Simulated scan of single mutants.
Amino acid sequence: MSEVITLANVLDDAALFSLEHQVHLEEVVGEHQWYVNLQEGRFDFTGSRDLTCSRVHLLGSAAPGPQSWLWAWANPSGYPEQLTAHSARVRDFGQKHGIEQLAAAEVPFDALPGGPADPKLEPARVTGALLDAAKVVSGCWTSYHAEVGQGTRAAFLIEHPEFRLPAPTFPRVMRVLQQSIAELPLRDHRRAIHSYARLRGLGAAFTPDHAKLTVTGPDFTIGVEFDQYNRVGEISARSGAETV
């Protein structure tokens, strides 16, 4: 029997790999300003360094007025098809798996899992979540979103050769694990960490009872133990002769 895929599953699958890509984007562009021309399909960074993305994809926008997200494929502004193709792929994925938030043209903020106490954070939270879902579907893992007026946030997937992640190292993988556990709204830590290891090309093996996951890289081994609620209980790690 095939697995029933939910939005929560998709967000957990994306969480850590997406985080690492965003950390890497910050390393690449540094302090910056951004510029986009949607009709020309151009997205630029200026500041610490100048960089023009090789491709840009408009995913959608989150508006605080109607308290909703609008997918780019449904935007009446009539953007070029190549600019909105990834959003259409998300729609098709949502229709295939019965995930209404990915299939519907417009998504109310309160239809998304979780939520902050401050409603001013809603556009950013919703944008980040739906961008993560789009990354899983499209395979494009670097994103950017920003306010474009009156609290509305526009969301993009962006591509450039320098956005590709460097080879996994012990400090980098540990940082991603620790930061994600402390900061991300993970629903199933077990699934999220296993998905990250798989996407990152790391070894990943559970014990028979799935209580512990061993993640292996070129020169490190990380053991992650989980409790009965699929939360991380303890992490042990070894790099070379060192144990953490």
Rank of each mutant, 00 (worst) to 15 (best):
I5N: 01
L11I: 08
D13K: 14
V23G: 01
E27F: 03
Q39F: 03
R42D: 06
D44M: 01
S48I: 00
L51S: 03
S54H: 01
R55F: 04
V56W: 03
A62D: 06
A63D: 15
P64L: 12
P66T: 07
S68V: 03
A72N: 14
A72E: 14
A72V: 15
P76Y: 02
P76S: 04
P80G: 06
Q82H: 07
R89C: 10
G94V: 05
Q95A: 14
K96F: 05
Q101F: 01
L102S: 05
A105D: 13
V107G: 10
P108C: 05
D110I: 02
D110Q: 11
A111W: 11
L112E: 02
G115R: 09
K120Y: 01
L121Q: 12
A124R: 08
L130Y: 09
L130T: 11
L131N: 10
L131G: 05
A133C: 11
C140Y: 13
C140P: 02
T142D: 12
T142I: 12
S143R: 15
E147Q: 15
G151I: 09
R153E: 15
A154W: 13
A155D: 08
E159T: 12
P161C: 08
E162T: 11
F163I: 11
R164W: 02
L165P: 12
P166C: 13
P168Q: 08
M174K: 12
I181A: 03
L184W: 00
H194R: 15
H194P: 00
S195A: 15
G201F: 01
L202D: 05
L202H: 05
G203E: 04
G203W: 05
A204D: 00
T207D: 05
L213N: 06
T214F: 04
T216G: 03
F226K: 09
R231F: 08
R231S: 12
V232R: 11
I235W: 13
G240R: 10
A241Y: 03
V244R: 10
